[in-house]
Design a protein around this nucleic acid. Structure first.
Length: 961
RNA sequence: GCCCGGUUAGCUCAGCGGUAGAGCGCCUGCCUUACAAGCAGGAUGUCGCUGGUUCGAAACCGGCACCGGGCACCA
């Protein structure tokens, strides 16, 4: 099949005839994923296999992927997320749903702008020199190139997304959605503009939201300063207050000192005035609950313009706000003689001055948290600044209500694992307003126009503005409000130069990509709300909560039914992979080495405990991963199982062979069909309920252990029909061969369908090889195999497990005794259980084949005793499994010592079990209180263990002479 | 400070009330006409510590220890 399909993927899908089943010679012994994977990726995409029609039948199922940043290249986190999403989505497609999986990228405003500014700097220029327009042009050009990288890399994973619907958060549709969303929120009073203390990142020259600030422990100092009372010693002789600070430079902006109102030490001083050192400003002593009397001296300097807590104190006490720092992180004119110094230089200088003037009491080393900008990697500065904000509480309230609906309706969205809903709920409770404006150029420009003609042509904090959907609309609105248009005083508008937080547009992603705000959009009508959001826990606040808030406001419902939260992929030393640490493991390298299917399977297989981080082992010297290699080996196992089938199906396909006649089925056939049905039901259940790791493991075990290790081995003797048979025997053998072929073909093809969500390329390739379907037909678009409960046979599976165990005992005995693999030996089974004896008799030919038995006898204990006394006690290899005795009556050429030690081990094991069980049964409470069936089982086990020990002792005694 | 995870075989992890499991690794033997990326056989654990509940605990409850994460932070 490799040869046949490699030439032209699918020039004309419908017309391409089925490739003739490949002759076995054409099939290599090992699977080479490289060509196969890209071939199917192209075929799927070119045929539009994953481009759904909203009008098509089938229950809708939609996923919008978390859009990776255009700055990025594929990392393991993307690969993991993709593997999970694609597994879910491919399963739902097989399940017959009308599936949309929509891809796209995020414009990542700060990240991109930082990169571009770095480039400009290297070229010795600045964005201001370029101008806004040229800068943006350059940004788009950069995006076209870089954005293509990650998209191309996602394709290599075999992502079954609809590339025709690919979106970008800054494309026309998304931009229109952003403008509409901004306007509507503004109309509802949920967007406002004002001067507040914001997190200012001096590195990027922009405000950032609370979420983009990361607290870091830093070794700093605590400086103790003395602030003198202005009007001389107070009652009690106090001449000054001592305050402590980690940020001396801010004292230049102090407008009060606060103490706790209940602090007896300072009660009498509240209301008095201090003289601020270096500055000379008169500042009051105020009483405020926020102050912890226990900490330090119990006095806190208050700098409302440079600290959030102080800002709050300032509000409560009506304190003036004095900003002493400029937006670039240097001290401004208000800092007096320190003006112009960088904030860190100013710190040194202020301390030096305080010391020189005798206000420094002491300095102590102090470890404390400092807010850092996520992007800029520098400490953020709380600064007073006029920005745009979203009033979040009303939006959050709606989300909380959806999560805990009155009347006990199901939570929306439903988190998997459940525990993340608590994290989400907690964050939505006591949420703070969201600063959405950024002093950046790359991004969605804020749809607000300042009426600069009202303030002398410049944008000031008092310039009136209108929010509108376009400049034309803005002008009209301004006209109404400000008249204007006269020759004396023409109306001049200027759009706000700032851009919106990237996450504002990300928050609209689940519906902006489906056509919102066009309520009639076919995709929106068909696929919204989406079915599930799959993402890492690290962006629950950034993204998940923003989407639910926006969706609640604009669509009136939660944007997805389920939220499947997965963990992070960690490196071989359990470290978080990060660009800065340079410990990322390149998924593309692993794909090249092992194949995308192997990587995907490995990632999903590891995920069993949903939501847990997974560790990917990796050898950096050789760029190999044992985990992924194991999955590659599994892929190869499947390849070879299919190869075996192709060689042995006599050129037939599952379709030409048809369903097997139930009455013709042999024991092994019924067993594998029962296992198949069980795995079918179990796997569908797991895929459908986010048990992806379990699904992968279950299929792995079924494919490798049940199918390859046992079923394929068992049917070999039936598939190879000898030429030396007479006509009657030959006819029977051929009929049986056909049954085996039918079962084999059925089991293997259905297995491939079930594996398809996990290993899409390999399964597609093998499925075509087996079914000889035309190239334009895809496994990806087939139906999940029908579950046939009639095939389920629990008792048969149990009996078969015993048969397997019996064969294992024989093999073990042979190994212990040192028999050569080529050497055949007679096998005797002795069982007192007629059912087991019957199974063993039925499987006699199988046992012969699998154990190199010379002959197989199945005896009752009575028959065995008779035979033994007749033979006068005989040396034999013997073992026990349950009540079953396995005897290989063979003389000579046998390692008796090994055999003895095996029996001794058996005895020891049985004795230990006997001791445990007898102990339990001896406890009167056990018999009295445990459920009867447990007691009965215990008794049975004891009896069996005792019998086992006795049998082993007898056999050991036989060996003694 | 508050809130989540985790602690089981050398490694990565399942198991979540009836006397310990898988994969990888390891040991032994096999080029058995699908697969040496394989086959067969084998070894390996006071299930973090400590109380308790129970006839019975790796599992349930309490405490402790250690590892990891999140949130909020006192100058």
């Amino acid at each position: 099949m490799t040869e046949a399909s490699a030439a032209t993927p699918d020039a004309t899908p419908e017309a391409t005839p089925a490739p003739s089943p490949a002759p076995e010679a054409a099939l290599p012994k090992t699977y080479d994923p490289s060509g196969t994977e890209s071939r199917w990726q192209q075929a799927w995409e070119q045929s539009g296999a994953f481009h759904p029609d909203p009008a098509a039948a089938g229950e809708p199922f939609a996923v919008v992927i978390p859009p990776p940043n255009v700055t990025g290249s594929l990392h393991m986190g993307h690969a993991f997320n993709t593997a999970l999403i694609d597994t879910i989505v491919r399963f739902q497609r097989l399940a017959g749903k009308n599936v949309l999986c929509l891809p796209g990228t995020d414009h990542a405003s700060i990240a991109v702008q930082t990169i571009l500014e770095k480039q400009l700097k290297a070229e010795g220029t600045r964005k201001e020199d370029l101008g806004r327009e040229a800068f943006l042009e350059r940004a788009w050009a950069w995006k076209a190139q870089s954005g293509g990288t990650i998209v191309g890399q996602l394709r290599r994973l075999g992502y079954s997304v609809d590339w025709q619907r690919e979106r970008f958060t800054l494309d026309g549709g998304c931009s229109a959605a952003v403008v509409e969303a901004f306007n509507r929120l503004h109309e509802q009073g949920l967007i406002y503009r004002g001067e507040y203390l914001v997190n200012w990142c001096p590195a990027s020259g922009s405000a950032v939201s609370d979420l983009e600030v990361e607290m870091k422990e830093v070794d700093g100092h605590l400086w103790h300063f003395r602030y003198p009372l202005s009007d001389g010693p107070a009652a009690g002789g106090t001449t000054h207050l001592e305050v402590a600070t980690t940020r001396p430079e801010t004292l230049l902006g102090d407008t009060a000192v606060a103490v706790n109102p209940k602090d007896p030490r300072y009660a009498s001083l509240v209301g008095l005035t201090l003289t601020l050192p270096l500055v000379g400003r008169q500042i009051p002593i105020v009483a405020d609950e926020h102050v912890d009397a226990e900490f330090g001296t119990g006095c806190v300097k208050v700098t409302p313009a440079h600290d959030p807590n102080d800002f709050a104190i300032g509000q409560r006490h009506n304190l003036p706000l004095i900003t002493v720092m400029a937006k670039d992180g240097t001290m401004n004119q208000a800092a007096g003689r320190f003006a112009g110094l960088d904030r860190f230089e100013a710190r040194e200088a202020v301390v030096a001055a305080m010391e020189a003037e005798g206000f420094l009491v002491k300095v102590e080393p102090y470890r404390h948290s400092v807010p850092f900008s996520d992007r800029g990697k520098v400490p953020v500065e709380p600064l007073l600044s006029t920005q745009w904000f979203v009033k979040t509480e009303p939006l959050a309230a709606r989300c909380r209500e959806a999560l805990d609906p009155p009347g006990g309706d199901p939570a929306q969205p439903h988190f998997v694992p459940e525990r993340w809903s608590k994290v989400y709920r907690d964050w939505l409770t006591g949420i703070r307003d969201w600063c959405i404006s950024r002093q950046l150029w790359w991004g969605h420009r804020i749809p607000a126009w300042f009426v600069v003609s009202e303030t002398g042509g410049a944008i000031t904090d008092t310039t009136p503005y209108v929010v509108a959907r376009s400049e034309v609309e803005a002008r009209a609105k301004a006209h109404v409000q400000f008249g204007g248009g006269t020759h004396v005083h023409p109306l001049v508008l200027e759009q706000d130069p700032d851009a919106l937080d990237t996450w504002f547009s990300s928050g609209l992603w689940p519906f902006s990509t489906l056509g919102w705000p066009d309520a009639e959009a076919a995709d929106l009508a068909r696929w919204y709300p989406t079915s599930v959001l799959v993402t890492g826990f690290d962006i629950i606040f950034f993204w998940v909560a923003r989407m639910t808030m926006m969706a609640g406001a604009f669509t009136g419902q939660m944007p997805f039914k389920d939220v499947y939260i997965h963990g992070l992929v960690r490196d071989e030393q359990n470290r978080k992979m990060s660009k800065s640490a340079g410990n990322g493991i390149d998924p593309l390298l692993l794909i090249e080495r092992y194949g995308a299917d192997a990587l995907r399977f490995a990632l999903v297989r590891e995920v069993a405990g949903a939501g847990q981080d997974i560790r990917l082992d990796y050898d950096r010297k050789s760029d190999t991963s044992a985990t992924v290699e194991a999955s590659r080996n599994f892929a190869n196992k499947l390849w070879n199982a299919s190869r075996f089938a192709l060689i042995n199906l006599g050129g037939e396909t599952p379709a030409s062979l048809g369903e097997p006649d139930p009455t013709a089925l042999q024991l092994a056939d019924r067993w594998i069909l029962s296992r198949l049905a069980r795995v079918n039901r179990q796997t569908a259940e797991r895929y459908g309920s986010y048990g992806l790791g379990e699904a992968a493991k279950g299929l792995y075990e079924f494919a490798w252990n049940d199918l390859c290790d046992w079923y394929l081995e068992l049917i070999k003797r039936r598939l190879y029909v000898g030429a030396d048979l007479d006509a009657v025997a030959r006819e029977a053998a051929l009929a049986d061969q056909r049954t085996a072929r039918q079962v084999l073909a059925k089991v293997l093809t259905e297995l491939l369908v079930m594996l398809h969500p996990l290993m899409p390329h390999l399964s597609e390739e093998l499925w075509h090889g087996l079914t000889a379907e035309p190239q334009g037909t895809f496994l990806a678009l087939q139906r999940w195999p029908r579950f046939n409960s009639a095939q389920l046979d629990g008792p048969l599976e149990e009996a078969f497990a015993e048969l397997i165990e019996a064969i294992r005992v024989v093999r073990n005995l042979r190994a212990v005794a040192g028999l050569k693999p080529s050497q055949s030996a007679p096998v005797q089974f002795i069982s007192g259980r007629p059912e087991l004896a019957a199974v063993l008799r039925q499987a006699r030919a199988d046992i012969t084949a699998l154990t190199r038995a010379e002959r197989v006898e199945v005896l009752s204990p009575e028959q065995a005793d008779a035979a033994r006394s007749a033979a006068g006690g005989q040396r034999a290899l013997a073992g026990v499994s349950g009540e079953l005795q396995v005897v290989l009556p063979i003389e000579g050429l046998v390692d008796l010592d090994a055999l003895r030690s095996r029996l001794e081990k058996d005895i020891a094991k049985a004795d230990k079990e006997i001791a445990g069980l007898a102990g339990r049964l001896a406890n009167p409470n056990f018999a009295g209180k445990a459920p009867p069936e447990v007691v009965a089982e215990c008794r049975a086990n004891l009896a069996e263990a005792e019998a086992q020990a006795q049998l082993a002792r007898e056999r050991l005694a036989d060996l003694a002479d």
